[in-house]
Amino acid sequence: MRDYRKGYELAFKIITNATALLVVAIVFFILSIVTIKGFDHLSWEFITAEPTGDMLHGGIWPMIKGTVMLVMMMSILTVPLGTVIAIYLNEVSRKNWFYNIIMSAIRTLAAVPSIVYGLFGFAFFVNIVGGTLDWMIGYEDRVFQERCLLWAAFTMGALTLPTNVISVTEALKLVPNEQRHAGMCLGYTRWEVIKWIVFPQAISGILTGLVLSISRGAGEVAPILFVGVAYFIPHFSGAPLDQFMELGYHIFVMATQSPNVDKAAPVLYATTFVLLVLTFTFNAIGQIVRWIHRRKMSR
């Protein structure tokens, strides 16, 4: 009698391994295409110069500057808030209905499509908050009620808030409960336990959240599409109330609206290469910090 099981086993093995290989190959393929095609056009001048009118020559310095400014302002807004929320959830709150509401709020925030953040940023930050500020200060023309870097950073901050909360929460969960109890036995108040015992151990979680949200924020384009990014502003000053250029948006606009895509392709690949290097570096740093922290805590 022939045994069919051996054949099935072999078929399973081949199909699954081939699929895994396919995924790995796709990743390598994408990375190598961007590297090979982008490397030709890459130079020191390309990174540090301002673009010319047709955007085919010159460099991408304003985009890099805009991206960096955006993620910096975003981190300043979102990291403290995320840390506060995570500490509240883990250390202060009892596991009651209010805890559940905040938890589901964070989960909902993580699931909301990024384009909806864009809509929200435009309706709330630009029009409502900006309009109110203008009215309160008494400006005649629009100053705050404009699409600008500030509101883009606020929008990105809302987008990356769950990332921060989750990574700080992970770090807090690694702190053993005995240490908290030991702190209470020393007569610390709840806040002192948090301040002196728990928080120092969560710093690496905060760093991980920071770095991961930077990597996410540098790569997302959809939320800022209509909250402050612009097609061509070569002399970007860096002021929060100005419009700005951004790497991801630059790629999007050049690829879809450039009159001659073939001419633009080398610039695009080089820009993509820079963007990938930025996001992957931050991502890698985040993973390494997390890994080191895990090892330190588990020892």
Binding site: L81, V84, A158
Partner: peptide, 27 residues
């Protein structure tokens, strides 16, 4: 200090809920 700190942390939690509500309501 304890009361102030816990209050601030509580406000942070409240803000998270606020953002979600704001997104839903404004859209």
């Amino acid at each position: 200090e304890e009361q102030v700190a816990i209050g601030v942390l509580f406000l942070g939690g409240l803000l998270a809920v606020g953002i979600v509500l704001a997104i839903f309501s404004f859209i």
